[in-house]
């Protein structure tokens, strides 16, 4: 079985996501090579740290365009937390820095008056058919997407106001939360992404 390729560009904390995938019975391979990320069957784009540092790491290695191409071609990709944000056009965290632009959205700061970062478990609501299941997900974020981009199935959570919890299009799953830290619910979501062509397909 082909290993699951995790984009690893530096300090990003990938032990948790690696362990979660191994618990599902798959091997993982860490890489920062654009060719490998382009060829691999299934790719995980994790990410912690700042938008600017994340984009710099991707651009330096030519990863931004191959990841963008995977989304455009609807080839299996799991983007987590900053990984989701990097797929967007821009972020209030790093004004003037272009994102990958595969998702037609801009990343905003969590509303004023809320504790930042949003740390902990928040309810994920799924209203559209054939998407993920509702449940509790673990978040660690100071930024998020507010506006729903066209062409994606959207799950939402609320922190001060409603925001995008996850976006699904075919085998592309982009989560603001950390599925690898979201207990049984998160493990099941990862497993579905690993096992199926369409994350949203019904059981």
């Amino acid at each position: 079985m082909e290993p699951i390729v995790i984009v690893s560009t530096g300090v990003a904390n990938i032990a948790s996501v690696s362990a979660a995938i191994r618990r599902c019975g798959f091997d993982v391979e860490l890489t920062d090579e654009a060719a490998r990320v382009s060829d691999a069957e299934r790719v995980v784009l994790p990410g912690v740290g700042s938008f600017e540092a994340g984009m710099e790491c991707l651009r330096d290695r030519g990863l931004d365009s191959v990841i963008g191409d995977r989304v455009a071609a609807q080839r299996p990709l799991l983007a987590i937390c900053l990984g989701l944000q990097l797929l967007c056009k821009s972020s209030e965290e790093s004004l003037g820095v272009d994102g990958i632009g595969a998702i037609e959205a801009d990343v905003r700061r969590v509303p004023v008056g809320m504790r930042v970062p949003q740390f902990g478990w928040n309810r994920v609501e799924v209203s559209e058919a054939s998407a993920m299941e509702s449940g509790y997900a673990y978040y660690a974020n100071s930024f998020c997407i507010i506006d729903r981009p066209d062409g994606w199935t959207v799950a939402t959570s609320t922190y001060g106001r409603e925001f995008v919890a996850a976006l699904v299009r075919g085998p592309v799953l982009a989560c603001q939360f950390h599925p690898e830290l979201s207990g049984t619910w998160g493990s099941q979501l990862i497993r579905r992404w690993l096992m199926r062509e369409e994350v949203g397909s019904t059981c």
Binding site: N13, A19, S182, S187
Partner: peptide, 28 residues
């Protein structure tokens, strides 16, 4: 290996290198 929930680790973190070792081993 067994936790699918967040793990915080403290005690004896004296440097950035200490922290990176813990994060690398699986602390969140």
């Amino acid at each position: 290996e067994v936790l699918s929930i967040p793990l915080t680790v403290g005690g004896g973190v004296r440097s950035v290198a200490d922290a990176e070792r813990l994060l690398g081993a699986g602390a969140d």
